[in-house]
Design a protein around this nucleic acid. Structure first.
Lengths: 185, 185, 185, 185
DNA sequence: GATGAATGAGCATTCATTCAT
DNA sequence: AATGAATGAATGCTCATTCAT
């Protein structure tokens, strides 16, 4: 989607229906034919982002049900991979996140996304506790929130701050290692 | 500043010179007298934010040079305090951060702010290493980045997600404790 | 015709080709197949109106050549009947009349209609003068104009003012009686 | 008012804010400064019409309280005068009347106008009955409606049909004479 | 004949900015 | 310094019409 790139480049403020149409090589009325209103266009961007979230994950060796620790490592690995590969996705994500404060439609989408993400992490953590690789007294919900905060911080720092690649790599490794240590302590 | 509140409420997208003037009870032409362009108005918002950053800190008992661990705890305590007390400041901060990607003037301000913040943390960490409360092999710059990421994640999660207060308290405590443990290990 | 109803409901201003097509249950491009332009569509409305004018008359007992006074009474009776039965026809009529000032095609139609109407009335009046039921010195053309003005006033008042039915009945009776008295005096 | 002339020339359909501004020699944004919305502009036209209704009356010899018959004659005289002098006023009037069916704001204005007009006529008629120049059994309200219908018919016929001046003169005289005869019979 | 997509011209309205006082 | 009026350059959106299938 073109609108997506526009937001990445100029933000929501700079999102112009005409400009998106022009970059798509179509008449602006044609764009209105597919997205009757600007709001609909933005919804389209949101859906595009969600799709990208599902397809653009880092490559993965083992299928089936890998050990929880592996799964967790993969989460960080995936974040690193994507921050490097499609950083603009995170920029759009943050734009949308900020916008979600005023746009109920977007807020709903993000609430669902957050819940889904939490559930995913909690599932991993509970399994880890069950099979004994994570400590007994771990509160899965609280730990999931911690992990989310780490990753949000990572996204914030990298997507908006553009630090050198080496720093990012070191950072992700440290975050992953510390999280792991904390969970297994 | 009124423009500041407007941004907190409606975001950059919704920032209107006329509206700011109206809320300030003056004519919009009069506002242009003080801030010749909208860009200037935004710079005013940035300056206002920086000022708020310096004055609005959490209350503190001991002056002089407190132990590094205390200083670090205070950083988290301050974040918790401000996120509770003036959450809209963080909202504006994130709006500006997102905007900094396209606005060089804002980007410059944030670069300075980041450097200042890093230097402050590095100072604390180096002192801690020197006096032996933090581990010998600690890389102060890397650790400072880690702490910043934690705090950015916290700001992101709390300012845009509005989790319940109790969750925030627990989260900040955990983040502070884990960071401390990591530094002193 | 659907367009006809649309005009009755929303006026010329609100006449939309797409809306007409939608109400007809067809694609708007299909409508353009039948009426290549909006102008053609309006011509269709005009023709539909003319047809309605000829078919929708009040029921009538005697055929052949009724007495002129009967014929005249019938004209008023017909107006009353139609204003009650199909008031929206008069609304469209007035819309078209107003439009005729700028649309030569419609103006032509109305000129023909007016002439036809005048001729019809003049025929009745001349016959009435000839057989002696109307006064000798009557100017048929002038009297026809008078009758037309009465009926236009009636249409204007009733179609756009929506007065209660009883008032309309009384009004038409009075108009018919006065006209009759005037012609026979 | 310029918008007024535009409506007279091109009707409501053809009323364009930009065109009005251009004809007024001002920027279209400037027009929006005075009339924030097109609706407001139309309200301005309505008010202008009402004002014109009050100031543009036919010249009148006697002040004070003229005999009812004189007053009535004056009403017709005034109509003839205005139809000749400012025919476009009647065109706008009819445009607005037609529009009043869909625009509650305009409908309200016309309801008030109709009531005012009725009251005025009823006042004259009642006085005429009281002093004995009109017939005893006259129903003032019904008679007022009759007179209004006559005048509406006149306006309709003349403003939209543009008949030759001589015909109009004859018509108005006949209408006035017949009305008078009917009231005094 | 019918349709969905496409289009260009135009529309009311918005908004930061400027001007005259 | 302050203001109300003015302005130009958009901006999202509409609509009759055309095109390709």
């Amino acid at each position: 989607m073109i609108a997506y790139r526009q937001i990445a480049a100029k933000g929501f403020e700079g999102l112009r229906v005409r400009e998106v149409a022009a970059q798509a090589g179509i008449n602006n009325a044609t764009l209105h034919h597919h997205f009757p209103t600007k709001e609909a266009l933005i919804q389209g961007v949101v859906e595009h982002l969600l799709k990208e979230f599902q397809i653009g994950r880092a490559p993965r060796q083992d299928r089936g049900e890998p050990p929880p620790i592996e799964e967790l490592r993969y989460e960080f690995e995936d974040a690193r991979y994507r921050l490097r590969d499609t950083p603009e996705m995170y920029v759009v994500l943050m734009e949308l996140y900020v916008r979600s404060r005023r746009d109920p439609a977007i807020a709903r989408v993000f609430e669902a996304l957050e819940r889904q993400w939490s559930d995913h992490l909690i599932g991993i953590l509970e399994r880890g506790v069950r099979i004994g690789v994570f400590r007994r007294d771990l509160d899965p919900a609280g730990a999931a929130t911690m992990i989310k905060v780490q990753m949000k911080g990572l996204a914030f720092h990298v997507a908006l701050g553009k630090p050198p690649r080496a720093q990012v790599d070191r950072l992700v490794s440290q975050l992953a290692a510390e999280t792991e240590r904390w969970l297994t302590r």
